[in-house]
Amino acid sequence: MSSGFTHLDSEGRARMVDVGAKDETERRAVARAVVRMDPETFGLLSRQALPKGDAFNTARLAGIQAAKKTADLIPLCHPLSLSYVDVRFAPDEEAATVAIEAEARLRGRTGVEMEAMTAASVAALALYDMLKAVQKDVVIERVRLVSKSGGKSGEFTAE
């Protein structure tokens, strides 16, 4: 019944993959999300004049915390002992956007793509939460894996 799918057992039920026999390698993943807002909202964010306070620090901490909780949120993810998580912001005044880049690393038997994606997504949600007092229709877009390294599948870089 599994038809070769790694996350299904012989009866077609979802299961966590056994990674115990895999080699430990250095693994790294970078994910990105973009938050789009009105220019007026972007100006308040840039001047740190939002009613809720320091949006970037709040979003950074939310993203880091989210990466550490990924296995609690995504059912088939392995709990990982992350060695590094960072969340960075690239504001673009002309476009009134903030690109959020999250990076996760470890030495282990499984990758950290989901941790990086979760960190970028939750940082974007936290940024939205900080902005919603002044603009309700902020848009979170283009959440994606940018790159990964390590493991059997090797290197990946998005175009």
Rank of each mutant, 00 (worst) to 15 (best):
L125E: 14
G108Q: 00
A124K: 12
E40M: 06
L44Q: 14
R88N: 12
I64R: 11
E40G: 12
L44E: 12
G63D: 06
V98D: 01
R47H: 09
I74C: 03
T118K: 01
V85Q: 03
P75R: 06
P79Q: 05
A126I: 10
L80T: 03
Y84S: 04
A119H: 11
P75L: 07
E141I: 07
A90Q: 13
Y84E: 15
G111H: 12
V87H: 10
G53Q: 11
A59I: 07
A33N: 03
R60C: 07
I64A: 07
V35W: 01
V35L: 04
S83I: 02
V35K: 05
A31L: 09
V134E: 09
A31D: 08
V35N: 01
L44K: 14
S81I: 05
A133L: 12
Q65T: 13
Y84G: 00
S81P: 00
R32M: 13
A66P: 02
A33G: 03
A126E: 08
M130N: 12
T118H: 03
L61W: 13
G63K: 04
G63P: 02
V139C: 11
E141Y: 03
L80G: 01
G111I: 09
F89K: 06
L61S: 10
L125W: 13
D54S: 08
G63A: 08
C77V: 02
V138N: 08
E115G: 08
R36S: 15
T118E: 02
G53S: 07
Q65P: 00
L125P: 09
E93N: 02
G63L: 04
R36C: 06
R60S: 09
E103N: 04
P91W: 09
V85L: 05
M114S: 09
A120E: 11
V87S: 07
D54G: 03
V138T: 11
I74S: 05
F89C: 05
T70W: 00
A59T: 06
R105C: 05
T97Y: 06
A62K: 08
Q48E: 15
F56P: 02
V134R: 15
A133Y: 01
L80W: 03
A102P: 04
I100E: 04
M114D: 07
V112I: 09
K69S: 13
R109N: 05
T70N: 04
P39Q: 11
L61Q: 14
L61C: 05
V98E: 05
A99L: 03
V35D: 04
T118C: 14
P91S: 10
S121R: 10
R60L: 10
F56Q: 08
V138E: 08
A31Q: 06
F56Y: 15
K136A: 15
R142T: 11
V139M: 13
E141P: 03
A31F: 07
L131T: 12
R109V: 04
L76H: 01
K69L: 14
A59G: 06
M117A: 13
F42P: 06
E113D: 14
A55W: 10
I64N: 08
A124H: 09
P51D: 04
Q135K: 14
L61P: 01
A29R: 01
A31R: 00
A124W: 11
H78F: 02
R88F: 01
A99M: 05
R107C: 08
A95K: 15
T41Y: 11
R32F: 00
A55C: 13
R47Y: 01
A119Q: 06
K136V: 10
E101I: 04
